[in-house]
């Protein structure tokens, strides 16, 4: 067990270190800060009560950047290992493929979560400056559910990168993320309005695709609504862990079948 923990720790550290050294996270972070921080001091359209719109815009940017980071980080976990052939000395060490997969996944998740935490911190500062409220439980809940979103999206992208080309995985996962955030909740009603194969396609998407809209509580944050019940929040996080577990199990199967 101790050796397994050492291995997982070494693998996840490698992923985090590489991702931060590549500096693309730093670029996204800087870009986010450049956009987010001035929002704290703007009075849009000269309307003093427009802070709600500023908050909405800031949250939209945080979600957009988190999708870019989550996908960008996890899609590059395995393809470069195969391209540069570092996978051979890696698997020649006394480490199982499942451990490699899990360690790398944890690394990608840690990197994404740490970047998104900084965004939420910046958002908290923004809200604090504009509204004088420095801590809201709903903000904590939103951040927690955002972590749930990252748990799912990084596992899904990792699976995609092992069964298709990195660009195809990136495109498909980006479409899934944006599509499910925008239309996930409406899929059953959209399916009910259809006849023929379209109905079955929508229903299949409803049952197979991850329900990422569960993790999106931006409106509660923007309109200062109360938190979602904590047991619901826990259930949603459990759903994230189960969905990610399924993706990782499939990724493990694909990794074992991959020709070296």
């Amino acid at each position: 067990m101790k050796q397994w923990l050492l291995q997982v720790s070494a693998l996840s550290k490698l992923s985090v270190l590489e991702l931060y050294r590549r500096k693309d996270l730093a670029v996204v972070f800087l870009l986010a800060m450049i956009i987010l921080l001035p929002l704290a001091f703007l009075a849009p359209f000269g309307v003093s009560g427009a802070s709600r719109y500023v908050s909405e815009l800031a949250m939209l940017l945080i979600w957009l950047f988190s999708i870019i980071i989550g996908l960008g980080v996890s899609v590059r976990l395995f393809p470069p290992e195969f391209e540069s052939r570092t996978i051979y000395p890696l698997l020649a060490k006394p480490v199982g493929r499942g451990t490699v997969l899990f360690g790398k996944y944890l690394g990608a998740l840690s990197a994404s979560v740490s970047a998104v935490s900084v965004f939420y911190l910046a958002y908290a500062v923004l809200v604090g400056v504009r509204q004088g409220e420095w801590f809201a439980p709903v903000l904590f809940q939103a951040a927690l559910l955002h972590v749930g979103f990252l748990i799912v999206i990084t596992a899904l992208t990792l699976l995609g990168s092992l069964v298709m080309t990195p660009s195809a995985a990136l495109t498909l996962c980006a479409l899934t993320a944006v599509g499910m955030l925008a239309f996930g909740q409406r899929l059953p009603s959209l399916a009910a309005a259809q006849t023929g194969p379209g109905r079955w396609v929508l229903l299949a998407i409803h049952w197979i695709a991850p329900h990422l809209e569960f993790f999106d509580v931006r409106q509660r944050l923007v309109h200062a609504w109360p938190c979602v019940e904590w047991r619901v929040c826990t259930a949603v996080l459990a759903y994230a862990v189960c969905y990610a577990g399924l993706c990782l199990a499939l990724a493990g199967w694909a990794f074992r079948r991959k020709r070296l």
């Binding site: 101790k2 050796q3 050492l6 291995q7 720790s9 070494a10 693998l11 550290k13 490698l14 270190l17 590489e18 050294r21 590549r22 540069s84 052939r85 570092t86 000395p89 890696l90 060490k93 006394p94 480490v95």
Partner: peptide, 23 residues
């Protein structure tokens, strides 16, 4: 055969990584 290792690590970090994998 083709010794291309992780380009964003230094040699110390590379050896710590592989050492960690060996427990």
């Amino acid at each position: 055969e083709t010794a291309t290792y992780y380009p964003y690590l230094n040699l110390h970090e590379l050896l710590f990584f592989y050492g960690g994998l060996c427990g």
